[in-house]
């Protein structure tokens, strides 16, 4: 195949995109739910208890389909888990080890330095299980969606009966907040699916709230430090602006204009 034929094959997609003639994608009509989040606002922190419960939901539910490739077990210190807890969590996973003397693959228990164990070998394998729609990696998923936390919460709580006449094909599910309303993910959360150690009742709403808090943290692990630092930096700069302005008035006081 010559270069120009290859190019001619590749161009139309980009061309179509550049002119944006593509049919408008169906948008979710529903306004997103407005949850109260511990991390919203410039003084927002992070509800560590919710984030830890959220990790439990991720670990016991979501992680069977979704990878979390940018996180290491050691990072969990960021939601307040102790070194021992982290070690235990990591050790409960079996991860690929070094090749043995015969060149065969081995396995070993995980350590805090390991990346979160992925459910599938690669995204092809993951896609194959869901009609081609691989479950997206969850490391920065919350930042990758318009609407952020409210959207994720909406997806997790948005499994309702389709309106009369709406045909839901096999392998797809109806979701109020998914653009186009059809999603390849079966409803992941059901009441009492996990048992919280702190006695919190595991309703769908509660678990959705907790896991969304956890996903906010995985997407923005620096957020609490960032905002705390920001308050000080901005305050300092505003004070400096005031001070400099006073000096400026002083210096200009001898100028007639």
């Amino acid at each position: 195949m010559s270069a120009s034929t290859l190019l001619r094959r590749l161009l139309p997609a980009a061309m179509a995109a550049s002119v944006l003639l593509a049919a408008p994608a169906v948008r979710a009509e529903e306004a997103l739910p407005h949850e109260h989040w511990s991390f919203s606002g410039i003084f927002g922190g992070l509800d560590l208890a919710a984030a830890q419960r959220g990790f439990q939901v991720y670990n016991e539910v979501c992680s069977s389909c979704h990878s979390m490739n940018l996180l290491h077990y050691r990072d969990l210190a960021g939601i307040g888990l102790t070194a021992q807890q982290i070690k235990d969590i990591a050790a409960s996973k079996t991860v690929p080890g070094p090749l043995d003397d015969n060149g065969d693959e081995t396995t070993r228990p995980g350590t805090p330095a390991d990346v979160f164990k992925a459910p599938y070998k690669n995204s092809k394998a993951a896609g194959a299980a869901f009609g081609g729609a691989a479950p997206p990696d969850q490391s920065v998923l919350l930042n990758a969606r318009e609407g952020g936390a409210d959207y994720i919460y909406g997806i997790l709580t948005g499994y309702v009966d389709p309106p009369a006449g709406f045909k839901v094909p096999d392998g797809l599910y109806y979701n109020e907040y998914m653009p186009g309303h059809l999603i390849h993910m079966p409803q992941p959360l059901h009441d009492d699916q996990v048992t919280y150690a702190d006695g919190t009742k595991a309703t769908v709403a509660q678990m959705a709230h907790d896991v969304t808090t956890f996903l906010y943290w995985t997407s923005n692990p620096e957020a609490v430090t960032r905002k705390r630092m920001g308050v000080r930096v901005v305050l300092f700069l505003v004070l400096m602006a005031g001070l400099t302005y006073t000096v400026k008035r002083q210096i200009w006081s001898d100028v007639e204009h």
Binding site: R226, K227, G230, V231, V233, L237, A241
Partner: peptide
């Protein structure tokens, strides 16, 4: 210019941090 710079950096910082 320093007055303007402080105001500018304050706005810049507000966006970066918040």
């Amino acid at each position: 210019d320093s007055v303007g710079l402080c105001v500018f950096l304050a706005i810049f910082a507000a966006i970066v941090f918040f």
